[in-house]
Amino acid sequence: MTSRKLLSEAKLWLVAIPVLLWTLIPIYHIFLFSISTKDSAFSGRLWPKQPTLHNFVTVFNQDHFYLHHFWSQIWNSLWIAVATGVITLAIATCAAFAISRLKVRGGRTVMNAALFTYFIPAAFLAVPMYKAMGTYGLLNSRWSLVLAMVTIASPYAIWVLKQASDKLPWELDEAARIDGATPAQLFRLVYLPLMVPSLVAIFTYALLLAWNEYLYAFLLLSHENTIPLAVGLGHFLSSDDSPWELLMATALIYGLPPAAIYYAFRRYMVGGLTSGAVKS
């Protein structure tokens, strides 16, 4: 390697190392505490003297006041995330097909309405949504969070799916019509199979959005049987002597699935989710 090349390579590392530290320190901090005992947790070491999995055992056994509902909370999180993913996918796929392929009258208006929802800051929509869920009598039902998350996730889902649909050749629909396909058959036999990559991306997007959501969860759900893990974690800070090592262990368990799912479907996510954004 010439010295000039070496220099430019060194410049890259000069950026890379701070980026790596900046990204990983808060995450490593979680990990560090989750494998430390309560006593050694505050020693300021970069690796505990005696790493332990005891914190996880405590969490799984629900052996602490804050953890009494751990499994039920995880179940709620999962239930809400999957329900949001499925419903968002169904609603958004149908809408995108109607707008993009069937060119339904009023489709443009609906798309604009969806985009409007997409751009409104989520925390702003939360206030009226909270009130409305109360009116509908859905507060404290897991459905309230599912429906709220579907409301938040579908606009972007429709937008991305519409963009992907628009790229399918129009002649395919015409060929199918001439071949004798009804709209339902076109949808099922031609459209859905061709859209699979985008559908995977959208399902994952909605799933992660719902699993990760905190604000709506803690606004809409407060009954201990319905709260998801995110809200359960929030409860840890209600007193001053929080068991931080348990909080961090639980947080790690909560944070791992979305990270894993994201990396498993990254191939679909990155292309699918940034395409819409870059166009603008």
Binding site: L172, E174, A175, A176, R177, I178, A181, V190, P193
Partner: peptide
Amino acid sequence: LDSKDRDIAMVFQSYALYPH
């Protein structure tokens, strides 16, 4: 009449074969 009831077949410029 809808396309499918006209008893015609069409060959498109782009072929329009179903990729899947």
